[in-house]
Write a protein that binds this DNA or RNA. Structure first.
Lengths: 186, 186
DNA sequence: GCTAAATGCGACAGTGATGTCGCAGAATGG
DNA sequence: CCATTCTGCGACATCACTGTCGCATTTAGC
């Protein structure tokens, strides 16, 4: 390969395959060993180590990659958009990349202390959208953000879960949206 | 100790303490080592091994114990009880034993192939209650059991999760009940 | 076709968890 | 008070995963 920083072509594809494999396995079992990830990605363990020197490197890379997926799959909402519609888009986008989301949120303190993990101050994440939705009455006043946000990801998680079974993904997504909207209603 | 099968007294308490410790740790990290569980249970690793010969033995014991908790904490509903009320009692009972529930349902195929894991045939688990609730109109006709059941445990999981934080347990339970009932409404 | 990069294979030592012991002290029950 | 049981401590071999090599082979670029 050339000396450029940004990988592309075959190398980028291999890297993506490894991240996909890691997300798929670590979503279910965060203790899945490197060997299993390599096998799933159809690379040798040696190659995996050439892309990611150690476990921490792969965890970090998958963390930022998953966050990119989550944000990138869902363009920022216009400030005049209905916040509940924005949440719905965010939910549907998340279901499309289920493994990444499960990896991110399966264990709430998996990335505690990781500099790449977004701090959960009130200006980040879902909070502004939830606040706006509550101001509009789409979320009942007595539902705290902690519950709304956790339930959001639980519903997302469930949809990703169910669509791995016999419920088609689009149907799971519809059910998820419907369940979340009704859950939040006052 | 005598030769009786059923343990009681101090030995039963030690056993229960170990199971509690395992549930608490494994709920967050299933790869938590035996040493950590022993420490949390305030027993030596040797003693832990005297109660449960190997990891699999403890996993199995915790599985059946958690299922017992889940079912036992919730007396069978009278057949004339409103099915949605029965589900609510089941949900509230589950939240009381959050760690056990998280341990049971954090990874849907953690116990795949385990003979103690209830087969998901339609005559078991929540299915009869869900069917009755749907017949009464408390659950919309177009919500499949797969979604209802998975969402039930997701809501339960979320309540257990949130009540480990700054939301008091009774409030989390109320939010969970409310969210589930509204999610299912037609 | 030639060169350089990328990959697979196998080996290696290091590490942490596991499961098994024996022994000595503490707790328990008659 | 004595015998039995339970427990903690530390040692031990074993195992699986990890991270690092060197070398041979394949692949890709010019």
């Amino acid at each position: 390969m050339t000396t450029e920083q940004i990988e592309r072509g075959a190398r980028a594809r291999t890297r993506a395959a490894i991240l996909d494999a890691a997300a798929a396995l670590w979503a279910r079992d965060f203790s899945a060993p490197f060997g299993a990830i390599a096998e799933r990605a159809e690379v040798s363990r040696s190659t995996l180590h050439r892309y990611f020197a150690d476990r921490q490197a792969l965890v970090d890379a998958l963390l930022v990659d998953s966050l990119d997926h989550l944000n990138g799959a869902d363009p920022e909402s216009a400030s005049d958009e209905d916040p509940m519609d924005a949440l719905e888009r965010h939910l549907r986008a998340g279901i499309e990349i289920g493994d990444r989301v499960i990896f991110l949120f399966a264990d709430p303190d998996r990335f505690a202390g990781n500099p790449n993990w977004p701090a959960d101050d009130s200006s980040e994440g879902l909070t502004p959208l939830l606040d706006r939705a509550r101001a509009e009455g789409a979320i009942a006043a007595d539902i705290p953000n902690a519950w709304a946000e956790n339930l959001f990801y639980a519903v997302l998680y469930t949809a990703a879960e169910v669509s791995a079974g016999d419920v088609p993904r689009h149907m799971a997504a519809d059910l998820a949206v419907r369940s979340f909207r009704r859950s939040m209603a006052g």
